[in-house]
Amino acid sequence: MKQEFFEQQHAADWQAFEQWLKLSVNKRKDRPPLPFAAHELPQRYRHLCQHLALARDRDYSLSLVEHLHQLVQQGHDLLYGAQGNFGQRAWAYAAGGFAADVRANRWWVLAAALLLFGPQLAIMLAVHLQPDLAYLIMSPLEVARMEQMYSNDAQTLGRVAREASTDFQMFGFYIFNNVSIGFRCFAGGITAGLLTITALVFNGLSFGVVEMRLTQAGLAENFYSFVIGHSGFELGAIILSGAAGLRLGHAVIAPGQRTRGAALRDTARALIGMVCGLAVMLVIAALIEAFWSPLKLGLPIKLSVGGVLCVLPLVYFVFAGRRRA
């Protein structure tokens, strides 16, 4: 069949298809009627694919082939681009998939926890025996500022020396700072895990120094009443981001019987849900840290409510989503 005849035969179909693609984007009520019903689309798309194959095989002109190719590509994007129900998927993930993912990665989580808490305990012991060792990690100025932040004269806990002065501003700061740290901790894993390990160890060390110095200064009560509420969510999320980063780093070092690219792809696909989950945890932590933790209430209240908030993530990770698996 010659090109001219081929075009004459099918031009109307192609035009209808093109028209449909153009109009279907328009969601307003007054749009002109579509040239054919939506359920005809897959069939028409397959016809178009056939025409493209014929046009290529019969050496029809380049521009005809290109024209059909573009139509096929747009149809392909439309048919294969459906995103599913995002809200429903996110909800199902939060209701149990996240916990199941974390349990599936429990050895990585354990490793990340050791990298965070190991240095923390070590430096706490060191500072307990030799207080000046704190200055290895933090400058004297920073230590003094920390002590002032949690001092008894401070109006609200945890933020006197910082420039921010209202709860909401602190909320913005915590989100910006902590979620970014979580994301970086994961992405840094691609440097064979080095950046992730550095971040975990360094965070552990500075927590340890602050905790021990404040205890030594007699401010432990203020400190714990501030941190206990959000610590479960915040430390939990940091450990998860560390676990994700370590696993990504492992895929770089030991891809197994795959290419490095394939190993990275598979690993990232398995981890990305967990990374989004930990971002949500950090947002919850920021809410608690900005609006609950700075309140000056009686120590028993702060400790009991904080304690419940603290073990909440743990309960979720241990028990949620068991039925799915």
């Binding site: 921010a164 002065s165 209202t166 909401f168 501003q169």
Partner: peptide, 10 residues
């Protein structure tokens, strides 16, 4: 003011 500062960070 401060509220705006928080929003800006977000």
């Amino acid at each position: 003011g401060d509220f705006g500062g928080g929003l800006l960070l977000l």
